[in-house]
Design a protein around this nucleic acid. Sequence first.
DNA 1: TTGTCATAATGTATGACAAATGAAATGCGG
DNA 2: CCGCATTTCATTTGTCATACATTATGACAA
Lengths: 248, 248
Amino acid sequence: MFQTSNALRRSVHSQVTDRVGSSIVRGEIGVGETLPPEMQICEMMDVSRTVVREAIRTLTGKGLIESRPKSGTRVRPPEQWNQLDPDVLRWHLESAEIDRYLAKLFQLRSAVEPAAAALAATHAAEDDIARIRAGCDGMDAAKTNEDFVAADIAFHQAIYFATRNEFFWPIAQMFEITLRQSFTIAATGSHRPRALIEHRAVLDAIVAGDAEAARAATVVLLAHSAHDLVRIRGREFETTSERPGRKR
Amino acid sequence: MFQTSNALRRSVHSQVTDRVGSSIVRGEIGVGETLPPEMQICEMMDVSRTVVREAIRTLTGKGLIESRPKSGTRVRPPEQWNQLDPDVLRWHLESAEIDRYLAKLFQLRSAVEPAAAALAATHAAEDDIARIRAGCDGMDAAKTNEDFVAADIAFHQAIYFATRNEFFWPIAQMFEITLRQSFTIAATGSHRPRALIEHRAVLDAIVAGDAEAARAATVVLLAHSAHDLVRIRGREFETTSERPGRKR
DNA sequence: TTGTCATAATGTATGACAAATGAAATGCGG
DNA sequence: CCGCATTTCATTTGTCATACATTATGACAA
């Protein structure tokens, strides 16, 4: 049984959270400005104050806003948002500048994933390796493009989990959200074989417990991935070391 | 005017959030188990249901729990927690295994910061550089150890902001929380000169717009930092590439 | 400038009802 | 009597409405 419509059937306060959070991330409210008073939001969205307050609590917890009696609820500077929070991420990716954000997320991934692979090589347990291998095999056996991408995601997530370092895990979460929003990252048939070989190289290095080889193999994998992204979505995804000039 | 006592004067729901969240992170409730019903928590903590519900909303927003009518509120698997959320981080660091967690956070930092410095070299604006330089100067001019550490933190945070990539910022937030919990990371006089030189090296590379130099200088800086940490807090902080054996 | 106070916003408490769901009770056919 | 589907029931979260407490802002006055 599926959830018939996507946004249907969800609780009222999560809908309010979405609307308010999205409009903050979108920049409609502006840093330092105050939201309308709770009662006013109630009227605008035709819900009870309970619901509005719980939505505000959620957003406060994600660092987007802070409220004080009398002075109201203000938008905090984006430096203090939990930018890696799944919801915040989603609100970003719903915006018009999705390609910009995907590129930035890829920058973070490029920074973290080689180190994650290296840590996985030294810290992975047997079942971690089994999950990584399952990802590889899944890519191999995939008939549809959808299956291939799913296995690909599983592979990379498994590497983050294999670090046995929970602070790497939020980066893994990032994938699901990112990929769910933009499905065009899929491997388009032709370079599947190469991708497969490169994934196996990472797996082998991890199995061998060779941290440096795992790091190197991941760097290669990501470089090609970036190249594909440039081809598909534009030059925002160019590698970092190619922009010498100072801005502004 | 300061907040006289640390935990005093805080709102009731944030106190409840702390107590419940802390006990979850501490593992007192166990993954998959259900919390007591809301009304029961009300009685236990002698607060209204409003407060308990808002606390639960906050924790739900951080991915710690999920609730459904009748079945109750369950603890989600730690893979889905927002491990980099400041509160979650704090609850971790309040636990007994603080050194373990500090070591893991340092692993993440080691993965990200070299890349952040490289990005800063190519993307930093003038005011970003000014902030980084201010950090250096602050370390130079520091009389007390406290001032030195504060400037040190400011320096590193400025580098993350200079990436102009908001998804690196949560990592920077990490510092404040980490350092506020354990102040022993301070540079103990003797190796201040070396630290200063290494920080300036990073700054210079960023000013020059040389990404690879910035990355390399940061790697050096972190290596020495890790060495100091091992000396002060124990061998948990050893570099990753030195543990060949497979576990379990 | 300083102190006081009115006021408007969030914070907390309470009680009621709606909705969802897991589990027990029930009914039916075998 | 047993197995299985169905219904009913009870428990827990979800939502609403209202009242009052608390706090900080901004105006006013000394």
